[in-house]
Computed example of a mutant assay.
Amino acid sequence: MEDLSPRLDRFFQKLRSREALIAADVDAIRALPFKLRTLTPSQYMVREGQLPQRFGIICDGFAYRQKLTIEGDRQIAMILVPGDMLDLPNLFLRESDHDIQALTALTMAEVPLEAVRELVLARPMIARALWTDSLVEGSITREWLLNVGRRNARTRIAHLLCEFQLRLESIGQGEAEGYELPMTQEQLGDALGLTPVHVNRMLQSLEREGLIHRRQRRIKVQDWPKLRLAGQFNQRYLHLTNVKPSANF
């Protein structure tokens, strides 16, 4: 069995931010029968109505949760970054109530779901860490609901850019020269309830005002305080404990 511990560093970092795990807890997680899996962009990891069987953790790359209407219209409900758990909402549910799809090429470590169920029932601190992370996902979902339901287009986009910046910083991927936003304008529209044309106009507006700089899909925040104000952004809902002071407020 391949030792995937180095690929799971961000996952352990996240769990330790949720709960003070003892060495025996970490060893128990490392002992799970992980297998590495590679996925291509747009590949499904979980389909709605599917019986959950595997527990996946993103090592590299990005994914998203989505819901589809009966007509096939898509609402992206959350972006998943390295260290995030794909199947946490399905840990004790009988079937998945949403799809999970690769946003970019990615690698994931997966383990049989039953092995994770046995682990959390046997080790309460691990259960508490996973439960806390599930609560944070709920917090993010509520913020996205507010964003789509009550904020205007410019505010929605500014808010998403602020969130992505901080979440990348929290896993050590935030850079002074900006970050790669791994979403097409169509995907941004599906996350924000906007048309691709409207997304493009709002991005251009933020750039003209000097809040961001774009080079293809690369985003550099030029004025963090003004972007945060434009997005009505308060990071409280992310429950982050390890963001850089330069981006904190």
Score class of each variant (00 low, 15 high):
Val199Glu: 00
Pro225Thr: 13
Gln232Arg: 15
Met183Pro: 11
Met202Thr: 10
Arg217Ile: 10
Leu229Trp: 02
Leu160Trp: 02
Ser205Phe: 05
Gln222Met: 08
Ala230Arg: 03
Leu188Cys: 02
Met183Lys: 06
Gly178Lys: 01
Ala230Phe: 01
Arg167Lys: 15
Asn200Ala: 13
Arg217Val: 01
Lys220Leu: 11
Ile212Met: 00
Glu175Val: 03
Gln216Asp: 12
Met183Val: 07
Val197Thr: 11
Leu188Glu: 04
Lys220Asn: 04
Arg201Val: 15
Ile219Lys: 02
Leu203Ser: 03
Leu168Thr: 05
Arg201Asn: 02
Gly231Ala: 01
Ile219Met: 03
Leu194Tyr: 06
Asp223Ala: 07
Arg218Glu: 11
Gly174Cys: 14
Lys226Phe: 09
Leu166Met: 15
Pro182Phe: 13
Glu207Leu: 08
Leu211Gln: 14
Glu163Ile: 13
Gly189Cys: 05
Leu203Cys: 03
Asp223Cys: 09
His159Gly: 10
Arg218Asp: 10
Gly172Asp: 08
Ile171Trp: 14
Gly210Ala: 13
Ile219Thr: 06
Gln165Asp: 04
His198Met: 09
Leu227Tyr: 07
Pro182Glu: 10
Arg214Cys: 09
Glu177Arg: 14
Gln185Ser: 05
Leu168Cys: 08
Asp223Phe: 04
Leu181Asn: 12
Asp190His: 12
Glu163Cys: 04
Ile171Lys: 15
Gly178Ala: 05
Gln216Gly: 08
Phe233Glu: 03
Leu161Phe: 00
Gln187Asn: 05
Tyr179Lys: 02
Pro196Glu: 02
Gly174Thr: 09
Gly174Ser: 12
Ala176Trp: 07
Arg167Met: 13
Gln222Ser: 12
Leu203Ala: 01
Leu181Cys: 12
Val197Glu: 08
Arg167Asn: 08
Gly193Asn: 02
Leu166Arg: 15
Val221Phe: 04
Leu166Trp: 10
Glu186Cys: 01
Arg218Tyr: 10
Gly231Arg: 00
Gln165Glu: 11
Gly193Ala: 01
